[in-house]
Write a protein that binds this DNA or RNA. Structure first.
Length: 870
DNA sequence: TTTCAAAGAC
């Protein structure tokens, strides 16, 4: 083995590459158990075989013919050897001649010739004794025909351990570890004693099958048999322990190993790297250098992977130099690893340079360069490379497919994603988990939840990634109930991890499912997941959206390394609760902490300003964003500004502002101005604005309702009637407005005019009583609001039964005195209910927290925290 | 010995 590595790494005239190229046995055999491949051992074995041939096959043949054939064999001339063999008479051929030709067939991997030799042997009636049988087995196995190899092997019942090893290692090589191990059992039954090669193979098989106990038992057996200091055996024991994550045991074995070879060192380095301690792997490599141990291609590859894992570009570059000096530059595996290292260290140029300079490329090279582009967010380029690769006849494998599907997911390329899905099905890759999971993610990210669910349901052995992906998919597509349902299904089969938490918490936030959120928080604390930034941030967001702003702040303060997203979550939390000034001071603190806002954090701060009516501050942020941060405002930013202007009564300014926008205003922008018109009773402008809206979204009921209310509030009843008729003719499709309240972990959902609830009568009685009190007291019912509401559209009747009112009344009736009533509504709160909320809070001495689709309303002592900004 | 899949803010 070490003969390949005579060179010192720094030698400029390194024959390493030369050796690697000319000694084809080396590279290909590195990971195989088969000992024939090792030059020295090969000779040993061959001489053994020849010995058997010479001693056991009878020589009653013409020496001349046999000598000729053997001569051809020695020269490697299979064609001539075959011709002579097939044209010779039976009596002219000796046993050793068949063996020589079979040997050559095996070397040349010519199964066809090998089979012909076999049939000649049969037709000549030659007795297949142990030696000839062994050669036949060797030929078949070496040519990849394990079935025939095994048939003959069993026929001759050979007790020579090397043949058993051959069979076992070949089965292990093709991944049939069970067959390999069953051979080992048969071998033991027959009383054939295993040698170091046998145990190396047995360990490899048990390790591959994940059989920890069996590996340890074999380890004990090995020690008993005295193989405890055999380097090859210890090397595979080290590898086995690493496979099970028992880093300490592996380390101890290595430390106690006297004759360490390069494989021992490589096993150590690679074991550390795959067990998540890349730094230790690098340290061991350095130790190797210090001690002057020769390294090889495998060493460099493992250390490069370590560099990629921890982003150590400078060491990666140094290793690049090492490799080139050692003439490994032409090794495709080296280049592939190098390419991936540059990419994972964030150096796309380096990766591209390696790729371009590569003489020979493989599917791994293509996949790595595609993944490099995906990593940098250059999805279209990645897809372009994918197409280019295919046009060059390189067929994508599961790795390529998983990468490209991911690119499709990130760039919303549903059509391309579907095309790749077709390729996956056609090529039977659908059962590969990373591929299937990537597909689920792609469909979900492209907003196609049904197809995501379909692919998910077809995965037979779903893993944690599959579950997290589908739960996250539902969360992101605003289907929180489905996400929570899947979360509970998942718990029946798997233990959720930190990523599950980050996937499911937004669903709790979406539903304002405080009890569920608290339960998950408990789980997070028990498992120590709070240290994960994603989890912590999702938790802050969840509490803010469930109305516990103080707790959100407390948790936010506990995050040691706050990033842009956590700051933004907190700013948005303050904003939706109407704490504009706190949002601003948080924004300032963020910048002091050295974190610069992006367009999302500007959206959060502008929203906060608009929910608190902070007009001047809003403008300041807007200008700062445009002029100093150099971020081009998007629709959501413009919407905040229109909101601020129009609420403050600057309606014509707002109109001009919209007209001056460099991007096309959407319905949300115009809708915001229409709301402003309603607040300030500007009928004329409202009509003008509504025209835009009816054109942009003719099926959206909300804008008809808003305009109708503008008319109603101006007491233009004729116009109201006309609009109602217009509405009546249209058939609107929409989700119904509903409100819900969580009591005792159970959701109570109310829709407008709901009379089917078990407590409907009690609720109705309470609301009637309160309405009467309102009319008699300070609260003159704002009838104008009640004239028409979006919720009334479905029922067609105006009634005192809006969902949020029902939910608030239910909360008061069912929650203990003093407990805050938390209600969530999927649309904006109606004015009538808003008044009722204030009144309820005073008469029942309760705090009522109502979250509508826009923000929080905290009703307390007859007042609302929104101060009219909603 | 190399290539792949899941999470947080607006």
């Amino acid at each position: 083995m070490s003969s390949v590595l005579k060179t010192r790494p720094n030698s400029t005239t390194s024959p390493l590459s030369h050796n690697l190229k000319n000694n084809s046995n080396y590279v290909k055999s590195r990971n195989r158990f088969i000992f024939f491949k090792q030059p020295r051992r090969t000779c040993l074995l061959y001489s053994k075989l020849d010995f058997y041939s010479r001693t056991t096959v009878t020589h009653n043949v013409t020496q001349n013919q046999n000598a000729k054939i053997c001569n051809f064999c020695q020269m490697g001339n299979l064609t001539n050897a075959m011709e002579l063999l097939t044209t010779s008479q039976r009596h002219e051929l000796g046993g050793s001649t068949y063996c020589s030709v079979l040997q050559l067939c095996a070397e040349k991997k010519s199964l066809e010739d090998g089979k012909r030799v076999h049939s000649v042997i049969i037709s000549n009636g030659v007795v297949i004794d142990e030696a000839l049988g062994a050669k036949l087995v060797f030929m078949y196995v070496n040519c990849g025909d394990l079935v025939n190899g095994r048939r003959i092997f069993y026929g001759i019942l050979n007790d020579k351990v090397f043949l058993w090893n051959l069979m076992m290692s070949e089965y292990a090589k093709i991944g049939d570890y069970r067959e390999s191990l069953s051979l080992f059992k048969k071998m033991q039954k027959m009383g054939v004693l295993g040698d170091s090669y046998t145990f190396t193979c047995v360990l490899k098989c048990f390790a591959a099958l994940g059989k920890v106990k069996e590996c340890k038992r074999v380890h004990g057996y090995i020690l008993k048999l005295g193989f405890g200091s055999n380097t090859a055996v210890v090397n595979s024991t080290i590898a086995a322990y690493f496979k099970f994550g028992e880093v300490e045991s592996a380390r101890n074995l290595f430390d106690e190993l006297v004759d360490r070879d390069v494989v021992s060192w490589n096993s150590m380095i690679n074991g550390c790297v795959v067990n998540g301690s890349s730094r230790n792997g690098i340290e061991i490599f350095i130790q190797m250098l210090v001690m002057g141990v020769n390294w090889d291609l495998t060493t460099l590859v493992s250390v490069l992977v370590a560099c990629a894992n921890i982003g150590n570009l400078s060491l990666g570059r140094a290793l690049h130099g090492f490799g080139v000096k050692a003439c490994l530059g032409e090794e495709v595996v080296f280049s592939n690893t190098l390419l991936d290292m540059y990419s994972k260290c964030g150096n796309l140029n380096g990766a591209t340079e390696v790729f371009v300079k590569m003489g020979e490329t493989t599917i791994v090279s293509w996949t790595s360069i595609i993944a490099a582009y995906v990593r940098e967010g250059l999805y279209d380029d990645a897809i372009g490379l994918f197409d280019e690769m295919q046009s060059k006849g390189v067929r994508p494998d599961i790795y390529t497919v998983a990468s490209i599907v991911h690119a499709c997911a990130c760039s919303n390329a549903l059509d391309k994603g579907r095309e790749v899905h077709g390729y996956v099905i056609k090529n039977g890759m659908g059962s590969n988990l990373p591929v299937a999971n990537a597909l689920v993610n792609m469909y979900a990210k492209c907003g196609n939840v049904e197809e995501a669910r379909l692919v998910f349901s077809q995965i037979l052995a779903k893993d944690i990634v599959s579950w997290n992906t589908i739960i996250g998919g539902y969360s992101q597509n605003s289907l929180p109930s489905e996400a929570l349902e899947l979360f509970s299904d998942m718990q029946k089969q798997l233990k959720p991890d930190d990523i599950t938490m980050a996937c499911v918490l937004p669903a709790c936030a979406g539903l304002a499912a405080l009890d569920k959120g608290r339960e998950i928080h408990g789980y997070i604390l028990r498992r120590g997941y709070f240290s994960d930034l994603h989890v912590a941030c999702a938790l802050v967001d969840m509490y803010a959206k469930c109305g516990l702003l103080g707790l959100a702040r407390l948790l936010f303060d506990m995050i040691p390394q706050k990033d842009l997203i956590s700051w933004t979550a907190m700013i948005a939390g303050y904003g939706m609760h109407g704490f504009g000034n706190e949002a601003i001071s948080t924004f300032k603190k963020m910048r002091i902490a050295g974190i610069e806002p992006d367009e999302s954090s500007f959206a959060a701060i502008l929203n906060a300003c608009s929910h608190s009516g902070l007009l001047h501050e809003g403008w300041r942020f807007f200008n700062f964003m445009r002029n100093e941060s150099g971020i081009e405002p998007k629709l959501e930013h413009y919407a905040c500004m229109v909101d601020l202007l129009s609420r403050a009564g600057n309606l014509s300014k707002a109109y001009k502002f919209i007209e001056s926008m460099p991007i096309e205003p959407d319905a949300t922008i115009w809708g915001t101005l229409l709301s402003g018109c309603r607040i300030h009773h500007d009928v004329k402008l409202a009509e003008k604005v509504a025209e835009h809206l009816f054109e942009l979204e003719p099926d959206n009921t909300r804008y008809y309702v808003d305009l109708a209310n503008v008319y109603a509030e101006a007491e233009k009843w004729e116009e109201v009637k006309k609009l109602q008729e217009k509405i009546g003719k249209r058939r609107f499709k929409q989700n119904s407005g509903c409100s819900w309240i969580e009591v005792g972990g159970k959701f109570n959902i109310f829709v407008a005019g709901n009379t089917k609830h078990p407590q409907a009568k009690r609720i109705d009685a309470l609301l009637r009583k309160l309405s009467l009190q309102m009319e008699n007291g300070d609260y003159s019912t704002k009838l104008r609001y009640a004239l028409i509401n979006e919720d009334d559209m479905e029922k067609g009747v105006i009634q005192c039964g809006h969902s949020e009112k029902l939910a608030m009344a239910f909360g008061i009736l069912n929650l203990p005195p003093g407990r805050t009533v938390r209600v969530t509504k999927n649309r904006r709160v109606c004015g009538d209910c808003h008044e009722m909320g204030k009144f309820l809070s005073r008469t029942t001495n309760r705090e009522i927290l109502l979250r509508d689709s826009n923000r929080f309303h905290c009703f307390k002592d007859g007042l609302c925290s929104c101060r009219g900004f909603w």
